[in-house]
Simulated assay, not measured.
Amino acid sequence: MPRIEIEVSDKTMAQWREFAATMQADELRQSGLLGEWLVQGFLTNVHLYLAEGGPQPPESRKSRNDRQDAEARRKLPKDKKRVLPMFNENDRLTVAEIARVLGLSEENGRALVDGWIAEGFLTNAGPRDGQTAYTLAEDWQVRNLAANRPSLNAPRSVYKPVALNRE
């Protein structure tokens, strides 16, 4: 049987050894396909390697999440896009505030907020100034933070204001 020898970096060899220890590699080895599979995979993609200068590293989990968050924000309807930045100023909003920004009656604002709660965009945050307040649902809080407060990467409610002692 013909044999192919290649030179690889220490990092690539370590990744190969890690893969070779997996159950998937063992199954390929037992079926006699490991070498064939590797060469066929390379030959299938060699045109990409030549055009792009090598295989592209896998996308990191953080960049994939950032891309998905940006896409989710981009797909929001106009009314949600107008309300989302309001949560940068105040973590808890009332129906009256949301309705005012959108130019709706409070009754129509209530119907809209109820729909957003059912969709998982908003959640009840308890009373504020005698009215029920709402906050972004947890997954939208993360998406909004990623877009507008990446340096904090945490809701403002986690941080306590610092009292300055001015003498």
Rank of each mutant, 00 (worst) to 15 (best):
P150F: 09
N148L: 02
T44D: 13
L93F: 04
A154H: 08
E167H: 14
M1K: 00
R73W: 05
D79G: 02
D26A: 06
R143H: 07
V95D: 00
I98W: 12
M86Q: 03
A20R: 07
L145E: 03
V39Y: 07
R92C: 07
R156P: 00
M23A: 09
Y159T: 07
E7K: 09
Q56P: 01
F19D: 01
V8Y: 02
R143D: 12
S63T: 07
V39W: 09
F87Q: 00
S157V: 10
T44S: 14
E18I: 07
P77L: 15
G120M: 10
N88E: 06
A146F: 03
I6Q: 09
E138Y: 15
Q131V: 09
P150Q: 01
H47I: 05
R92Y: 11
V95I: 15
N65A: 08
L102I: 05
N144E: 05
A14F: 10
V83R: 04
T22Q: 11
R29I: 12
L33G: 03
L50H: 06
P85T: 04
A111R: 15
N153F: 14
K81L: 10
Q15R: 14
Q40F: 13
R74P: 01
L112P: 02
E107M: 12
R149F: 04
I6S: 06
S151D: 14
N90I: 09
G53Y: 13
R17E: 10
G35D: 01
A14C: 07
